[in-house]
Simulated assay, not measured.
Amino acid sequence: MDTPGHSSKMTEVPDLTRATEKVKTLKHFPPYGSINGHSTGDTCPTCRGTGRIPRGHEDQLVAVIPCNDVRLKPRRTKLYVCVSMALCLLVCCLILFFLFPRSVTLTPVSVLSVMVYFTPDTVDMEVTNLINITNENFVPVQIAEFSIQSLVTDIVVGKTKISNMTAIQSRSQKSYTIKIDLPITDKGLNSYCKSGSIKIHTLFLELQMTMNISYLSHMEQLSLNTFEYIDCGTNSTIPHPVR
């Protein structure tokens, strides 16, 4: 029959064995929330403080990173964030600067010549004008169509449409010579232009210009009205600027 003292010794031996195994386990597997093995926190909820993963629970793992891990505190974080924001802002500003639509202007320059042909019933004139088209954009501009309507005393005397004009390169200006045919059939204007008693046969010609252009994937229409004077009596009109 065992004595009471002998029973207490037998109970202490398993306790010492368990304590020794726990110390060995903590040396290889630090407790939850510690990287040096000394912690007063809770045990790991995945391995339950044993340092081993139960079989069949591999897909239920929980990644635990200590709060004092240096990976959670990267160096120069604010500097990297500020530099990234500055680069994004710079790229956006450059895109807006180069792709922002700018003006395309149509400017009449001068009347180069006026050729007058008399027929029994009409006065046929061929007016040659010089115009400039300026492109302020950083992309080429395509000219889809260019049309001119000519009026004398609010009467339409001629229409001209040009559809084979070349593109205008970025940040450039291009000059075009436009020929306008003006057959005047009005009897009053015919008599005025053919009269020999009148020394000056000046007509004030109104030009209504319309140009359809395309750039940056959109269409745009430019309109311009200008006035110029021509001599319908003889071929005496000399080149002069449009005012």
Rank of each mutant, 00 (worst) to 15 (best):
I95L: 14
L96H: 14
L96T: 15
L96K: 12
F97H: 05
F98T: 12
L99Y: 09
L99S: 04
R102Q: 15
R102Y: 12
S103T: 10
V104D: 09
T107I: 08
P108V: 11
P108W: 11
V109L: 15
V111F: 13
V116T: 12
Y117F: 12
F118H: 11
D121G: 07
T122H: 08
V123Q: 09
V123H: 05
D124G: 07
D124L: 12
M125I: 10
T128P: 01
L130A: 11
N132P: 00
T134C: 02
N137W: 14
F138V: 02
F138P: 02
V139R: 00
V141Q: 00
Q142A: 12
Q142W: 13
Q142R: 13
A144C: 02
F146Y: 09
S147N: 01
L151P: 04
T153S: 06
D154A: 00
D154I: 01
I155C: 06
I155P: 01
V156F: 09
V157F: 03
V157M: 04
K159F: 13
K159E: 15
K159N: 14
T160H: 07
T160I: 04
K161I: 05
K161S: 09
S163P: 01
S163R: 11
N164V: 12
N164E: 09
T166E: 13
I168F: 01
I168H: 04
I168A: 06
Q169C: 12
Q169I: 11
Q169A: 05
S172N: 03
Y176S: 00
I178S: 06
I178L: 03
K179W: 10
K179E: 06
I180T: 10
L182A: 01
K187G: 01
S191T: 10
Y192M: 08
Y192Q: 09
C193A: 00
K194W: 09
S195Q: 00
S195W: 13
G196K: 12
S197D: 14
K199I: 11
K199W: 15
T202L: 03
L203Y: 06
L203K: 03
L203I: 03
L203M: 00
F204L: 08
F204I: 05
L205M: 02
Q208I: 02
